[in-house]
């Protein structure tokens, strides 16, 4: 370790230490397995010995105070940190048994399997149609225009956007409202047909009605995709997830079933956070 981690000190104070995480880090039918994951941005130790599993058919919510490493962890799952100039990642993340950090894995192919939705809706400066078609195009998923049309329509249909934008597929995606833009971004992600969808506070820039729509959508999508969602809203975590991972200062503090975490947190830090004493 290049710098002494503040997280360790706090953990020691809180009586945690090496036995992190508490709860049940393993999943019965694991899709993603994270082992000894460490991440640095320059000298900042952003993730510290994180290890747990995310199972098939699961919606896992990552919660924790700002700056605790939730987003960093999320970005390690599709290797989005690769392009960050001073970022360094060690450890292992396996997707269906294959380590995504091994040399043989191509990040481009990986990202076709692990999609991501961001905090702020970020549609491309292209038409609605092209926004959704883009991923399918670069991965060569459609052999002709009809197939591409089919992919675009299904994806828009699944996020409930098709009836709202059917007549204006040629208009810029940036002309849509915030909630529509976010659903467009989800449609864009599922058009590539990934296994996992990562969501980084997908509702933080949206109003309550748009948020409700996205949450319903997450519910529907969870039948087909493994979803990892970072959220600041405890209510949202309780509504959409079946498991919760609580992080604090770069460390995974507690993992467990959503109901159990919110009713009977094992760790003092988790309890403090979900009862609003810290964070």
């Amino acid at each position: 370790m290049r710098t002494p981690s503040k997280a360790n000190d706090v953990a020691a104070d809180a009586g945690g230490g090496p036995e992190f995480p508490v709860g049940d880090p393993s999943a019965p039918d694991p899709c993603i397995q994270i082992r000894d994951l460490n991440a640095w941005y320059g000298d900042i130790h952003a993730l510290c010995d994180v290890g747990f599993e995310i199972g098939h058919g699961e919606v896992l919510a990552l919660i924790g105070p700002s700056g605790c490493g939730k987003t960093t962890l999320l970005r390690c799952l599709n290797r989005l940190n690769d392009a960050v100039e001073d970022a360094r990642v060690t450890g292992e993340v396996t997707l269906d048994g294959q380590n995504i950090y091994s040399g043989s894995v191509d990040p481009v192919a990986l990202r076709a399997r692990v999609g991501m939705v961001f905090q702020k809706p970020n549609p491309f400066p292209k038409s609605i149609y092209d926004n959704v078609a883009y991923g399918a195009r670069i991965h060569g998923l459609a052999s002709d225009r009809a197939e591409l049309d089919e992919i675009v329509h299904t994806s828009l249909e699944r996020v409930g956007l098709l009836k709202e934008v059917r007549a204006r597929l040629d208009e810029p995606g940036t002309d849509l409202s915030g909630g529509q833009q976010q659903r467009l971004c989800i449609a864009r992600t599922i058009a590539v047909d990934p296994e996992v969808i990562l969501m980084d506070e997908p509702c933080s820039a949206l109003d309550p009605i748009a948020t409700a729509k996205i949450e319903d959508l997450i519910d529907e999508l969870s039948a087909e995709y493994v979803i990892v969602i970072v959220t600041h809203s405890m209510q949202q975590a309780a509504r959409v997830s079946n498991r919760v991972a609580y992080m604090n200062q770069g460390q995974l503090v507690e993992v467990g079933e959503t109901d159990r975490i919110f009713t009977n947190p094992l760790h003092k830090l988790t309890e403090d956070y979900i009862t609003g004493r810290i964070g």
Binding site: N78, L80, A83, P107, V108, A109, L110, R111, A112, G115, M116, F118, K120, N122, P123, F124, P125, K126, Y134, G135, I138, H139, C185, R188, T189, V192, L198
Partner: peptide, 27 residues
């Protein structure tokens, strides 16, 4: 061009040149 747009394309699996030509240049 906002980094968020660039990351969106990157997370979709676009390569550097695809991001540059398809996404960043039009924006």
């Amino acid at each position: 061009v906002p980094a968020s747009i660039r990351e969106g394309a990157e997370a979709l699996g676009a390569t550097r040149s695809e991001i540059a030509l398809d996404i960043v240049l039009p924006a």
